[in-house]
Simulated scan of single mutants.
Amino acid sequence: MLFSRFESSIVASTSSDHAQPADTFPNASLEPEDLIEFPKLSKPIQLLITKALALTHQNLTYLYGSADPKEGGMDCSGFIYYLLTQIGLKDVPRSASQIYSWVRKEGLFKVVLSNNQESFELSELEPGDLLFWIGTYPTTNDPPITHVMIYLGHEKQTGERVMVGSSDGRTYHGKRRWGVSVFDLFMKFANPHYHLNSSTKFIGYGKIPGIEKLEEN
């Protein structure tokens, strides 16, 4: 199976067009015990994932420009910013592009060039890692990173890779979701009429700078 079929976004959205489509399904949630790898994770990563999944129960929409659940929703980087500051990390960047640069400067980023879901390039991907995309909407940011989420690992029920964050159209179990939710790592569409945006590309993943040091505090 190829990323080009499953991980691309639907028609790229822009910051001015975020009305929730009528064909989206309710936000999806999981509990930590629903994840295969969770019991073996470090305490900081368990805390990260527990707090991230708790946000999926709040019925939060996708809200461009928001990094606060009190506003009723968050955008993708706002979700990451809020979550990382809540667990005690300092100086967390706000935008997806800045978060990518933060990870890259620390030497923690792993590039993914392959379109194969079974590629060796994914062999070091672990729960708690940040995931990065380009091309989900037009941007002038440099680097042009447009989307970021957190990898959760494998779901017990299906054995599939899942992630968490805020999105305006990615899928979970093949159904489009909107807002703060659990999502399929590789997008799958039950409806064959959806058209994928070929400009969208998953480019890699990386550890969160400083997160393991939280265990020392």
Rank of each mutant, 00 (worst) to 15 (best):
E71V: 08
S101K: 15
M74P: 02
T85H: 12
S101I: 04
S95W: 00
L89G: 08
R104W: 10
A96R: 05
P69F: 09
G72L: 09
V92K: 06
S101L: 12
K105P: 05
R94Y: 12
W102N: 02
D75E: 14
E106I: 07
R104I: 06
S97L: 01
V92T: 08
I99Y: 07
E71S: 11
M74W: 04
C76L: 02
P93V: 06
G88C: 14
F79L: 02
Q86H: 09
D75M: 00
D68T: 12
K105V: 06
Y100F: 15
G72H: 12
Y82L: 07
C76E: 03
G72I: 11
D91W: 03
F79N: 01
G107S: 11
V103Q: 09
G78F: 02
T85Q: 14
D91A: 08
A96V: 05
K70W: 09
L84D: 04
K90E: 15
Q86C: 10
G88T: 14
V92D: 04
L84T: 02
P93M: 10
G78N: 07
M74G: 01
K70Y: 14
F79D: 01
E106Q: 15
L84I: 12
K70M: 14
G107W: 10
P69K: 11
T85R: 14
Q98E: 15
L83G: 06
K105C: 11
V103L: 10
L83R: 08
P93Y: 13
Q98T: 05
E106V: 09
E106P: 07
R94V: 11
S101H: 08
S95M: 01
P93H: 13
P69E: 05
Q86N: 15
R94P: 07
V103G: 06
P69A: 09
I87T: 13
W102S: 05
A96T: 02
I80C: 03
G78V: 05
V92Q: 07
P69M: 10
P69I: 04
I87M: 11
T85D: 09
G107K: 10
C76D: 05
D75N: 06
I99M: 06
W102C: 03
E71C: 13
I80G: 01
W102K: 04
E71Y: 13
I80W: 00
G72F: 12
L84Q: 03
Q98F: 08
F79E: 01
G78S: 07
G78T: 08
C76R: 01
S97H: 00
G73N: 00
L83D: 10
Y81Q: 06
G72S: 09
M74F: 05
S77Y: 04
F79R: 01
K105A: 13
L84R: 04
I87V: 13
K105G: 13
G73L: 02
G73P: 01
